[in-house]
Design a protein around this nucleic acid. Structure first.
Lengths: 199, 199
DNA sequence: TAGAATACGGAGAACCTCTCCGGTTTTCCA
DNA sequence: TGGAAAACCGGAGAGGTTCTCCGTATTCTA
């Protein structure tokens, strides 16, 4: 809960109208993204926030930055859950439960969470990708040491699989399919690696 | 190899300039999509094909149709491979090998294959989605009857997982990661379903 | 070869992203 | 408290995109 948000480090404190506009923009973005998906018009967001396009682009240089801001609190929640689960008893359960939460996160608003995680590998969103990777790695490592998770697995891989589920089921999917696919992945996580015929 | 392409059923046979333009467009699209990904400018494709935008849109009403046309021969190849593998000895091996081929297919050109399969569930691309689903289902069913693939699995689910891998690793991925993720999924396919703590 | 059917292609409407800069508002300091 | 300076706003607009419409040109058929 440190002031991770503040892009402007210290200075003479942001002007209140700037802060207000920023909040309005994030709120509008949340709405519009929910309606039209991650590719929604940024113009429309500015319009609905009651500001000009210039203002939007000054606060958020690109779509990713805006997406990140919209998802920031959700990521915070995920982080809190991870910390909490890291202190729990069963390492396997903890990993599983967090992955379920993460899948739900990555699927919000027509897969915008997943889209963000996969697209913005070098921009501002990097930070958010990194944080999530840390959470996953923490829980996975523990499950490998104290649980039944197989050792030949990296947090990155696990994450990539779940993001994949989110993306491929973003538009149209049977109800319950995403969770079913995650079950499948979890089977693989706990099962012993089999010998591949072709290496 | 029947004339599956022909959208215009019979009629007085297409004019040769129309056919030529169509071919030019597909060729240009192949190039441009490869360079700029599935979101490439259709204008640019028309320009490079030496035709007007109007011509492009008459031949292909939307991006999906064009993508489908570009990938048509690849799908044909995949289909041939499926038939061949269906006649092979080991049902498990057949499924695995086809899934590897399919993953490669879905990853071509910055994931345009995967993008197509997931987005166009109701448009022209539906046909192509359906065909691939049939292939997957055929091979999976056989592996369930004569191999070790677990029974509680639908072709659709398997496909969705692999498409997810293609999508999430489309932009940036470690070399070899997509195949590694597929290995993981294959482990799950052959392993027995485990009891989930939370149903 | 002439008429009819078919296809072409570019102009253009409507939208989008993103930049630039004159004018306004807020803050700070004397 | 009264400015000056810094910070910020917002809209005009450049340049891109998708997609349509329709007069014109081409090709097929008889």
């Amino acid at each position: 809960m440190t002031n991770r948000q503040a892009r402007i480090p210290v200075g003479p404190a942001r002007r209140t109208d700037a802060r207000l506009n920023r909040e309005r923009l994030v709120a509008a973005a949340r709405e519009v993204f929910a309606e039209a998906g991650p590719g929604a018009s940024l113009n429309e967001i500015a319009r609905r926030a009651g500001v000009g396009p210039g203002t939007l682009y000054r606060h958020f240089p690109n779509r990713s930055a805006l997406l990140t801001a919209v998802l920031a609190d959700r990521i915070e929640t995920l982080h809190a859950r991870a910390e909490q689960l890291l202190a729990s008893e069963d390492a396997d359960d903890a990993l599983e439960e967090w992955l379920r939460a993460f899948l739900a996160h990555a699927r919000v608003n027509q897969g915008m969470g997943g889209a963000l995680l996969v697209e913005s590998a070098g921009e501002l969103g990097f930070d958010c990708h990194r944080r999530i990777l840390d959470m996953a790695t923490g829980l996975l490592t523990r499950a490998q040491r104290r649980g039944t998770a197989r050792a030949d697995l990296a947090g990155d891989d696990l994450l990539q699989l779940v993001i994949g589920i989110a993306l491929s089921t973003a538009g149209s999917a049977r109800a319950g399919q995403p969770e079913l696919l995650l079950d499948l992945v979890l089977d693989a996580v706990h099962g012993a690696p089999r010998r591949r015929k072709r290496p």
